[in-house]
């Protein structure tokens, strides 16, 4: 099958099989920043934003994504040269160890802060509940999200 998908604001033409998971389609088309940690919807490494809402791309068929849908990966919010405030906050807080969970967690934070610009610690923890990180113990991730919230407020 073939489809045009809106990924990070650009139109990408992708080919896929009928039951192909969005995770595979994205990765096969070069969006390798979307990681695969479990393929059972439990780790959040494959998380992308679909019209601003976090979804685990390993639980979604590519066929079910509509051409008018907007997909966002971590590269879509900022890059090495112009990083997003959240990405910088993760760096400054020491919230990135191996970084394998980071793309998913940064996006989960992005979605949270869009909806709730001043989350409490509990709200941050809750928003991250679908994302596993085995390296950091989450302490610095939570700090990073709060730092990003603060910086976005004063921006």
């Amino acid at each position: 099958m073939e489809k045009q998908l809106n990924i990070n604001g650009k139109i990408a033409k992708v080919t896929f099989t009928p039951e192909e998971l969005l995770l595979y389609t994205l990765r096969q088309n070069g969006f390798t920043e979307v990681k695969s940690g479990c393929k059972e919807g439990e780790c959040g490494a494959c998380l992308v934003l679909l019209n601003g809402k976090p979804v685990n791309s390993c639980l979604m068929f590519t066929a079910s994504v509509l051409e008018e849908d907007k997909l966002l990966t971590v590269k879509g919010i900022g890059d090495l040269h112009e990083p997003h405030v959240i990405q910088e906050a993760f760096v400054d807080s020491g919230a990135v160890q191996c970084g394998f969970c980071t793309p998913g967690i940064v996006l989960a934070s992005y979605a949270l802060l869009q909806e709730n610009p001043t989350p409490t610690e509990e709200e941050v923890k809750k928003a991250m509940d679908g994302n596993l990180c085995r390296c950091t113990g989450y302490v610095k991730i939570i700090e990073a999200v709060q730092l990003a919230a603060k910086r976005l407020q004063t921006k």
Binding site: E33, V74, L80, P83, F90
Partner: peptide, 13 residues
């Protein structure tokens, strides 16, 4: 700052 962290946080690595 961890030298690879921005590259990781932006999905470049």
């Amino acid at each position: 700052k961890k030298i690879d962290s921005l590259s990781l946080a932006t999905g470049e690595s």
